[in-house]
Nucleic acid binder design. Structure first.
Length: 553
RNA sequence: UGACCCAUGGUGUAAUGGUAACACUACUGAUUUUGGUUCAGUCAUUUAAGGUUCGAAUCCUUAUGGGUCAACCA
């Protein structure tokens, strides 16, 4: 039973650290900024950080990187917590960078006292101009050599609110000619007279990312601070600050963010889609957000499985959504209740059926022996799917056609006898005969048919609404195309079928339950449902070999 | 015209100097009361060129390609 699974590069680092005694336990953190909802890319980071401390001794904190009050809101904090929990993880401590504002302020003072930070009065424009370029060194600010006393005085006054936004900053004194642009006297604090979602109006100076993240890691004694590749150049500054501050040495490690095709995973872009109403909200089922996936019907298990399968590495990647879809199908196939729902009805009249009705039994899930079964009423008039009948069938079509036999799932074999049309030539109904000895479970007819159709009794059908989703974008990588990424939105990403016909047991449909509409796909009840109308979201379709066959021609 | 990161099938991830593996996709076929599921099978001389070595995807050099860095964002 020894499942030899190779380690990813972070696990290798950790095993090495554990083996050589560098650490006895490890501490990681998941550090979102509460300025948007979490998306599938964050799920990878969550699974990674929490997964590591499930595998190795230690724990994971949830830390909100809330150092920019103008973009952050409590609504986001709440959604993030909900999403992490939904994914199935428990954090040890819930922390906020804002918990540390006082300490961070002390840290800044310490740097000033060591003559490693100074207050600068130049404007943002001047600063940018003096920053240099990757190939040219920057220039020292004329305020770079202020005395420690003056810096201290000015910084305290910045904190006390004596200056308006933007007129002064606190910068680290490193090297304006440094080859790493981030080391060219980075800004540590800026003035923002803004209301913070947690500290209110207490502060008017706020630390920058580089003066908050590593310090928070250090305060929490995070051993392995894992972030994405774009922070690689920040590591040098991360280490410099920890060294100069003489605080707990956390270490930063970077991995490549996971990209998925036909969607975008950037909070900024997702926010645009929400604000400009291209979707109904952060949890629109088409969104790659955790809340969108949840509403779409994805299970936490399937999302975790996905993250596990795509792994972690340092190379750029573009994961096919097909993997995500495979993961939900795999899980849903095991747990979803099978139900029959006809989307586009064609009425079948079984001419030789003389009973008023009868109750048939059908299994809830063929994958689950203990899944039980439910009752389905059968009668003389039923609906089948319009495209399950063809007057002139192509080769290899084994659904209903004139003279052809077909089985109605969990019921009888029927034979098409007559096609009824209206004056315009449209097929209005199809008359069939049934074979009484072919009843499911007690079939003595000896007849074998290739096709089995789902159906619903006309008289007993329950009306419902179904929402079908397609990929949000028409192209694999919308951000890689010319022009605005929104030009590449898929105009047909949502299709609503206001009325579909479901078997009566669907009246009992409940939200957490997952359903497979036989031969259609997986569906979940949406919160927009009410007593008068059930609304279902399509999570993902079934694999469809026939559709492929048809496409091939 | 700089620094840093990266390069293995269509895709993602392994192989940690000893005859390239797993999964997804695609394609075959078998089973099937879901054209689903399940099962069996097919699909790469590891970006290139040198070098080290008995032996290189792995180490070295160079080239090529991709990515990142000049927000008072994170």
């Amino acid at each position: 039973m020894s499942e030899e699974r190779s380690l990813n590069f972070l696990e290798e680092i950790i095993e090495e650290d554990l083996k050589n005694g560098k650490y006895k336990t490890i501490v990681t953190r998941f550090p979102p900024e509460p300025n948007g909802y979490l998306h599938i890319g964050h799920a990878s980071s969550i699974c990674l950080n929490f997964g590591l401390t499930q595998k190795y001794p230690g724990y994971t904190n949830l830390r909100f990187d809330d150092t920019n009050p103008v973009t952050e809101e409590t609504e986001y904090v709440d959604s993030i917590k909900e999403d992490v929990k939904w994914l199935g993880f428990e954090w040890k401590h819930e922390r906020y960078a804002s918990d540390y504002f006082e300490t961070l302020y002390e840290f800044a003072l310490k740097l000033i006292d060591k003559n490693l930070a100074y207050v600068d009065d130049i404007s943002a424009e001047e600063m940018a101009a003096m920053k240099g370029t990757p190939t040219e060194p920057g220039k020292d600010s004329p305020f770079r050599n202020r005395s420690v006393e003056e810096n201290r005085d000015l910084f305290v006054r910045m904190k006390n609110g004596e200056f308006p936004d933007g007129v002064r900053t606190l910068r680290a004194k490193i090297d304006m000619a440094h080859i790493n642009m981030l080391m060219r006297d980075p800004i540590l604090y800026r003035i923002k007279h803004a209301h913070h979602h947690r500290t209110g109006d207490k502060w008017c100076i706020y630390p920058m990312y580089d003066f908050a993240h590593g310090q928070s890691d250090s305060i929490e004694e995070i051993t392995h601070s894992i972030c994405t590749l774009e922070f690689v150049p920040h590591r040098e500054l991360y280490d410099w600050l920890i060294e100069k501050l003489e605080i707990y040495p956390s270490h930063q490690y970077e991995f490549a963010r996971r990209n998925i095709n036909y969607t975008v995973t950037s909070k900024r872009k997702l926010l645009q889609l929400v604000n400009e109403k291209h979707v109904t909200g952060w949890d629109d089922p088409r969104m790659p957000t955790i809340s969108g996936l949840r509403r779409r019907g994805y299970t936490p298990e399937s999302v975790r499985e996905f993250c596990d399968r795509i792994g972690v590495a340092k190379r750029d990647n573009m994961v096919d959504v097909g993997v995500l879809e495979f993961c939900v199908r795999e899980h849903l196939n095991r747990i979803a209740l099978r139900r029959m729902v006809v989307f586009d009805p064609l009425k079948i009249v079984i001419t030789n059926y003389t009973k008023d009705e009868e109750i048939l039994l059908s299994e809830n899930n063929p994958e689950d022996e203990n899944g039980g079964s439910r009752e389905i009423p059968f009668s003389k008039e039923i609906y089948i799917e319009r495209d399950d009948f063809m007057e002139v069938p192509p080769k290899k079509y084994f659904r209903l056609a004139p003279g052809q036999l077909v089985r109605l799932k969990s019921a009888y074999i029927i034979k098409c006898e007559e096609v009824v049309k209206d004056a315009a030539g449209n097929i209005t109904e199809v008359h069939c005969s049934y074979i009484p000895e072919s009843k499911s479970g007690e079939d003595t007819s000896g007849i074998h048919v290739k096709g089995t159709l789902h159906w619903v009794s006309v008289r007993h059908a329950v009306k419902a609404t179904v929402r079908l989703y397609d990929r949000l974008f028409r192209v694999e990588d919308p951000t890689d195309e010319a022009g605005d990424f929104k030009e590449y939105l898929n105009p047909d990403s949502l299709q609503v079928l206001p009325v579909v016909y479901a078997e009566p047991s669907m009246k009992q449909a409940v939200l957490p339950e997952r359903y497979q509409f036989i031969r259609k796909g997986y569906f979940v009840l949406d919160r927009d449902s009410d007593n008068d109308n059930l609304v279902f979201n399509k999570t993902v379709g079934l694999k469809d070999a026939w559709a492929k066959e048809v496409k091939k021609g």
